[in-house]
């Protein structure tokens, strides 16, 4: 399995918020053991989807200056699930962004109904060496749709 847990970004306001999509397919490897008779996307992986989209939002908002690494998650609340065929829409709001750290909050929805809320997710920021910024930019820009 490739560890790219969001598929595309459908809406992006630099420094403020973003919305992204994760499609759940019946061919996903994590569904083989989770569970054979009842395929459902593991909730920690949805948190990872949110963390990846949040990281993307922060890196692009900082104009490819910082890479965001998750250090703390607070107030995770699940209220639904995502099964094969579902399209998860994740809404990320940047609560705080400075040169050392960033905090986001997020909600994941399926068919307009919340399935998971993250009250606060904090990242530590690492400066990307200038030589590497172009490659990251090329890869990240392709995700906006």
């Amino acid at each position: 399995m490739r560890f790219y847990l969001f598929d595309k970004v459908i809406d992006f306001i630099p420094g403020t918020s973003s919305r992204g999509i994760k499609n759940v397919s019946s061919q996903e490897e994590f569904l083989i053991d989770h569970y054979e008779k009842f395929p459902v996307m593991p909730l920690p992986l949805i948190v990872e989807s949110i963390a990846q989209l949040g990281g993307w939002t922060i890196t692009v908002s900082s104009q490819y200056r910082y890479l965001a690494l998750m250090v703390m998650v607070k107030d995770v609340e699940a209220s639904g699930r995502a099964c094969p065929g579902d399209q998860i829409e994740m809404q990320v709001t940047i609560e705080n962004l400075n040169e050392f750290a960033a905090t986001i909050s997020s909600v994941a929805l399926v068919e307009g109904k919340p399935i998971l809320k993250v009250g606060s997710l904090t990242y530590a920021l690492y400066e990307i060496p200038e030589a590497d910024r172009r490659a990251i930019k090329e890869r990240y820009e392709k995700l906006i749709n």
Binding site: S25, E28, G85, D86
Partner: peptide, 13 residues
């Protein structure tokens, strides 16, 4: 039927 296309699939490598 729906078929979802997702970035986790190995063949995209």
């Amino acid at each position: 039927a729906i078929k979802n296309v997702t970035a986790t699939e190995d063949y995209f490598n």
